[in-house]
């Protein structure tokens, strides 16, 4: 509650603030550790914005992760929830003073509930221009099929 919201979009900031309020209200004593069992640092992870798209063959999850090495991103799926987590290292010049600081660094985590059945074994992820794209194909049996009509 003492940190000003500084999200990429106003909605994100409001969302984060709202979740913090809900968490504060629901967890009376246990302190800030109400979100995950294994948090590497005491800095709460930030949530990068996510877009979800669907095509006939697959579900696409797009995550804004500028300056993040895709090899360092951990993508897991459990119980219909896709979890994307990692750490964004600070990338500015080391010594000089920072005059304006709006960008987020440090640990990030984002959980995306999957509404459609997907084949996790066939999932692929690629990163380009600071956007991580996770491709989750639909199970082969659920893909739309064209039934050929045989001439009688």
């Amino acid at each position: 509650m003492n940190r000003p919201p500084e999200g990429a979009t106003p909605f994100q900031a409001v969302e984060r603030e709202l979740f913090r309020m809900i968490r504060d209200a629901l967890s009376p004593a246990p302190g800030p550790e109400a979100d995950g069992p294994d948090r590497p640092e005491d800095e709460p992870p930030f949530a990068p914005p996510v877009d979800l798209f669907e095509t006939a063959e697959e579900t696409l999850v797009l995550v804004d992760l500028p300056g993040v090495d895709p090899a360092s991103v951990e993508i897991t799926a459990d119980g219909g929830v896709l979890t994307i987590r990692g750490t964004r290292p600070a990338d500015g010049p080391a010594a000089p003073a920072r005059r304006v600081g709006e960008r987020r660094f440090g640990p990030f985590a984002r959980r995306v509930p999957l509404t459609r059945e997907v084949d996790l074994d066939a999932a692929r992820a690629e990163a380009r221009d600071g956007v991580l794209t996770v491709r989750l194909p639909r199970p082969a049996a659920r893909r739309p099929r064209t039934i050929p009509i045989r001439p009688g």
């Binding site: 990429a8 979009t9 909605f11 994100q12 914005p49 996510v50 877009d51 979800l52 798209f53 669907e54 095509t55 006939a56 579900t59 696409l60 797009l62 804004d64 509404t115 794209t133």
Partner: peptide
């Protein structure tokens, strides 16, 4: 905008 021409947006956070 879209990653694929036939992609249907389900949820969008970055406009």
């Amino acid at each position: 905008p879209d990653p694929a021409p036939d992609a249907r947006p389900i949820h969008q956070e970055f406009p």
